[in-house]
Design a protein around this nucleic acid. Structure first.
Lengths: 221, 221
DNA sequence: GTTTAACGGAGCATTCCACTCCGTTATTTT
DNA sequence: AAAATAACGGAGTGGAATGCTCCGTTAAAC
């Protein structure tokens, strides 16, 4: 780690010296936080984040006054990533490939799903806003697929969210093999989501889940 | 809770008094342990188990000398439950309904999937044996579905396990709405697992996952 | 050479948790 | 009815983990 710090000046020629190190640490910390909290859950030790970022604890606390603050920022950042994935999906030519890609990307982004954090931090206005945007975009992706008749009619945006959420639950220490397995399972689910002539023979059970449930997941503080 | 204890004598006429209470506590403790550990993970406090069972901590420790011992017993009991579900599946007339029922039952049994515990306890011979039996039975269920041509050809027993494992990952405090959502998602996956003429157009990506990965999950102590 | 900005990590106070100990309560035996 | 037995509950203990602070160090900037 000493080595890293020593080498630091040569990495990004834009800024130099301490300022460059600081900028790099900014990014590293967020990435590390994402990996740690999404894989180990919200009560992973803050020290683990610092360690993973190759940085002292104080350096972390200089940026985020508190663990909760870090988690909140993380949430916003993740929602933005979801939005980005949705925009990519909307830009795709084929509506089905768009949707499928959206789901895959969100799931892959994996360390990014914040389901494990849900309910452990207070809801900030910033989080609410980012969530609204991301939700709306996801709606568009799903609506487009529906309009094209490629998505089974009885599946809703919430169902898609639930898929992503479920597959974002990961073991504490994921292995490469896990990723492969997940890929197969996601393919399986996507296959189930596809519009087919026999869909009416095997309808999804019950009523479509309401958005409330999903919101609640986050609201409860 | 006082009430429960007081009422105790009337519940099971077989045995009476303290012995009956003890027998009841035996069952309650295992059930409570299952619910707690599977929903909150293996490092849920032992006290939570006792509380959920409506029993003092000492009562728990009188039966299981240590937390690890409790987890190990739990594992065995879960494997047996899986085996039982497989036997039910094999007894079903329709091979597809058998398989679908197996998956649903294992997932529902949910508090029963021990994925969250994997890797946190030492592997006992008893666990190994129970696992072997359960694996073999699951193989039979899948083989029967394959033989009947109702399960997509590129899906393996391991895939089925992975489905169950993935859907057994639950939020810490599951709500009734969660159960409903899960039901829909499982239906989706099952629909994806069904043999269809167009299966070859959308094959599962990659090679079938090896059993090793699944074993490793448990072996690492 | 001095000031300043960023860093690292030991240490503190606190919480949490597995497990023990002992007094209480209810049944069974004599 | 009294003594012995069996099961129970839960406060208490020691130790480990964790969020956060404080301060000495290092390196860029002036």
């Amino acid at each position: 780690m000493d080595i890293l710090v020593t080498m630091s000046t040569s990495e990004r020629p834009r800024k130099r010296g301490r300022q460059a190190e600081a900028a790099r640490n900014d990014r590293r910390l967020l990435a590390a936080a994402r990996e740690v909290f999404t894989s180990q859950g919200a009560d992973a030790p803050v020290s683990a984040v610092a360690e993973r970022a190759g940085v002292g604890i104080a350096t972390l606390y200089r940026r985020y006054g508190t663990k909760e603050e870090l988690l909140q920022k993380l949430t916003v950042s993740a929602a933005e990533q979801y939005s980005e994935a949705a925009r990519t999906a909307l830009a795709a030519e084929d509506p089905w490939e768009g949707l499928a890609g959206y789901v895959r990307e969100c799931v892959d982004f994996g360390p990014g799903s914040l389901a494990p954090i849900a309910g452990t931090v207070r809801f900030t206005p910033e989080m609410a806003e980012a969530g609204r945007v991301s939700d709306r975009l996801a709606d568009e992706v799903v609506a487009r697929a529906h309009a094209a008749g490629v998505l089974r009619a009885d599946a809703t945006t919430i169902d898609v969210f639930l898929v992503i959420e479920q597959f974002s639950r990961r073991p504490p220490v994921p292995t490469p093999a896990d990723a492969h397995a997940r890929e197969r399972l996601v393919a399986l689910v996507l296959d189930g989501l596809r519009a087919r002539p026999d869909n009416t023979d095997f309808p999804l059970p019950g009523r479509p889940p309401s958005a409330e449930r999903y919101d609640e997941l986050w609201r409860r503080d």
